[in-house]
Amino acid sequence: MTTTELAPLPVGSGTTSAAVTVRGLTKRYGGRPVLAGLDLDVRRGECFALLGPNGAGKTTTIEILEGVRPRDGGDVVVLGEDPAVAGRGWRDRIGVVAQGEGGGAALSVRETLDHFAGYHATSRSTAELLSAVGLEESAGVRVERLSGGQRRRLAVALGVQGRPELLVLDEPTTGMDPVARRRFWELIRELRSDGTTILLTTHYLDEAAELADRVGVLAGGRLADVAPPDELGAALRRQSTVSWLEDGARRRVRTEEPGAVLRDLLAVHAEVPGLTVTRPGLEDVYLRLVGAVPTAADGDLR
């Protein structure tokens, strides 16, 4: 309903409530445009999920926001500063959980956390971090002997160690088992309730639905839509699919007025075999937004 999110605000306006403001961001790799005039707003204190298929530019976007990748054009303001020129004080206010690895592989988990504590103006204690990500029992284990999921948890601990105002997470739960994932979600909710702004990319729609106040879908180098998870793709959601069997074949009709379709059907047939009326879920909306499913509503797959 509220599409005001998409209306660009001028840079600098209302910065007290904006953690991230992006206008017309462009980036190309060897002539191939990855970001084509991206606009993005993340408010202070919210959890924003950036969704998109592989190669859509999610990682590129957040690396530009982190100030570790140069941009080709556009305006970017993160926590009041331009990431391309901001200094260490600014960087210390941002926590990042990247896809890459942490400290030296021959260090134990505890040694890694103890060492990196010395890089921040203010740090969470190692004991607090170990328990928050559930690595207490692996504290003495060397990083090289950790499983993929445990490494991800260590990366999360390192990301939140410096009590960041803005936490940026690039596919944080990839490789985590379901228990670790739940625990991670819990941690993110706690951080959010403490006032930390959270920007995450994810492949998992359930994760976005679970955590995010708002979801942005990145497709074709721009945001295809921005909305709370259950309002995403409002126009698409209004379309229901009515499906039934007729002469042994399945018929489908997509409509905004399923009631009218049903009335017509029942006027002709006494009984309608295999009748279903489905509304698109988050996944259907997402797939259509990123253009993976052009028009067909796959009622059969549900």
Binding site: E66, V68, G87, R88, R91, D92, V96, A98, Q99, G100, E101, G102, G103, G104, A105, F116, Y119, H120, L158, G162
Partner: peptide, 16 residues
Amino acid sequence: ERESGQLERLQLLGTP
């Protein structure tokens, strides 16, 4: 260290 992403971590921490 660069290849394994350790330097990336240092960069993100703002290490001089």
